[in-house]
Design a protein around this nucleic acid. Structure first.
Lengths: 129, 129, 129, 129
DNA sequence: GTGGTCTAGACCACA
DNA sequence: GTGGTCTAGACCACA
């Protein structure tokens, strides 16, 4: 399910954060749905619980999930998310990455197509619940 | 000019690599143009020469620049760069980042516009004006 | 074991890279086996940890090993390695070196024999004995 | 003729040494033939004379050429060349390089073929003068 | 404990 | 003068 790559240069907690975001963004994890507990997930993935906790903490500060003491962690309703500051940062990274992709030979057509596919996945996913 | 952030989580050498790439991609640093020497740049940025060299070495292995021992460091002609493997990796990051940007509220229109602006900068720059 | 030559014109880190490659290629270091830690090896060889790390980083970019931050460095599964560009480069060096060896008096018979011995070591080693 | 690559990581003097060896090994430069003077070659290649001199010095120590004061530099008769010590060293490099080539996916058939082609070039070249 | 980054400073190779 | 290597030593991030 999470297929983490221990060999990746990207730290495991960061991979976890990205996977979680992906699941939330694509509406696979729905608003207010409860996430698996730190211990459960740690066992499932045979990963240090500290690492899971680190990921959950990160997701919480970024506004993707919220925690209730004694109950667990839950997906934030998407309306909570819009965040100017964060958007600015992501845009900055995007510009950098798009430039590099073009420089490496990616065509406008390819980029357009990629854009449309992603749009379908994201918008499509968040509508039909 | 380089506005590095020493406090950032991103290592200094990596920030430098990204800035340099940007300058090369946007054709501000032209093919075979000589870069500032390791020592000179180190003084200008008040950063240790080893850190500069680390960045230059990285840029060299990625094919963006080449270094000649007794002479200096120079921008690679862009034709050298095409690299399948690297492109794949960049595309993966792009998908992730585009999804996140849309989720955070960026519209298709904004993305389109961003795309076109970047295209102009990259393609336009590589003409020899 | 590693018999490095500090006086050699070849940098220490490069000697280390070559030795490590040899151990990996001949399957003495098996896939996913953990390498000695940077600090440990540095002590054993009485060499600066930075130099060891330089070698490990090089091996990582060449695809021979992978490093995980809090855990250690490990041998890459051999299937990851195939790399067209690198092979081309090695072939070029081979032609040069073979020509020189023949010029210096090495016979075709000697070369054939050398070839077969290496084949046995490399291919034989990769069976899981 | 010499097509040196200033962008290569290999120092220019070393590239020159290799090219010269190649020409001598393939009998394009014949025994006792006079080499271009340091100054002439420096002008032709628009390279620092010191660099040429460095290359000639290296070729002389390795026994490929000899110099006569006031007259110039000449190709050594091939009988002078056989050199146990040097052969050992080249063999060592060969083993390393052949192992790496196989590990990177070169087949025995490819290596055999390469061997035969080189044999033809070297032996063929030194006979027909 | 393990890898990763960075500094300060020395010395070498090359052009 | 320019890049390249190496050491000694500090401090951080991750698991």
């Amino acid at each position: 399910m999470f297929d983490l790559d221990v060999r990746s240069r990207k730290p495991i907690y960061e991979q976890l954060v990205d996977k979680m975001k992906e699941l939330i963004i694509n509406d696979i994890l729905k608003s207010d749905e409860q996430l698996p507990s730190v211990r459960t997930l740690a066992q499932q993935l045979t990963i240090n619980p500290n690492t899971i906790q680190r990921a959950y903490r990160e997701l919480e500060t970024e506004g993707y999930i919220y925690s209730i003491k004694g109950k667990g962690s839950f997906v934030s309703p998407s309306s909570i998310s819009p965040n100017e500051e964060k958007l600015k940062k992501v845009q900055g990274e995007l510009v950098r990455l798009l430039s590099e992709a073009m420089y490496l030979g990616m065509s406008m057509e390819q980029l357009q197509k990629m854009l449309e596919e992603i749009e379908e996945a994201v918008k499509g996913g968040s509508h039909d619940d």
